[in-house]
Nucleic acid binder design. Sequence first.
DNA 1: CGTTAGGATGAGAAGCATTATCAACAAGCT
DNA 2: AGCTTGTTGATAATGCTTCTCATCCTAACG
Lengths: 150, 150
Amino acid sequence: MCPGGTPRAAAAAPPEPRVTKQRVAVGDALDTLNDFVTTQELHRLMADDGASVSLATTYRILQSLADDGLVDVLRNGDGEAIYRRCSVSAHHHHLLCRNCGKAVEIEAPAVEAWAAKTAATHGFTSVNHTVEIFGICPECSAASQPATQP
Amino acid sequence: MCPGGTPRAAAAAPPEPRVTKQRVAVGDALDTLNDFVTTQELHRLMADDGASVSLATTYRILQSLADDGLVDVLRNGDGEAIYRRCSVSAHHHHLLCRNCGKAVEIEAPAVEAWAAKTAATHGFTSVNHTVEIFGICPECSAASQPATQP
DNA sequence: CGTTAGGATGAGAAGCATTATCAACAAGCT
DNA sequence: AGCTTGTTGATAATGCTTCTCATCCTAACG
């Protein structure tokens, strides 16, 4: 996820993207969110908010932000890419509610170490890993089990 | 992945799928493989092998097998579903080569425990998790780094 | 401050994986 | 053998993501 997987040789000049209103709109929209969203969801949110950014551009900008490590990317159960601006830039993982999308950032140094050690044991290099936990958060759990018929 | 997320009430009779030649073909094809494949890849492999199973059916059968926990499913970096018949039926994870697709099955009781504890701490229920490690295996690593210019 | 070059955008088409549809077929049972 | 019902195959449909290209706008320059 966050870790840079872009071994771009330090040769070409850093092509900084231009500051356009669309880029700002996407950035603002991400700032108002605490949960992961798909590109399409973010696009609709911006449309509802008055900002008009085309879907194609939304895809482009989110991808660009992800490449630069400015947002976290992971995949939901359906294989769709979901994005979120995370508060911590360090490597971390998530505990996600399958129902409402609520996300909790978690850190697990022990897991990091385990992953690195396991990979090394098998001789793997250029390693990265995905560790995500999906479940039902307390609120959704309470809401969806109001009456349990026998 | 493997864990059954199908809280199907124990009421309906167990609808065992019929033994058709297509199902057998998919099973055989999976047995000859040691690595994860996409549905499309498996479909082409079977076609090359003389077995003619339609693409739609391949999708159906793989999904069915996955539902029954007979094969492992996970997502590659592109979000595509990839399948593999695993030797151990217990819950486990994988160390995957990004280059050649080689997969190593790994077990991590400590990680399981950590995931369960973390979820419980935040009050999450119906929890499952994904833990996959991607990297470059020793062989690919050696092959792609023949000469290291200073 | 006006001009300019090239990256960025928008709208729609295109690409691709996956799923749905539905008539024809065949596995398993009596 | 005959019947019932789950399966299959071919194709259409769906939906996410990427590509194309004419137009627009940012950033830099004169």
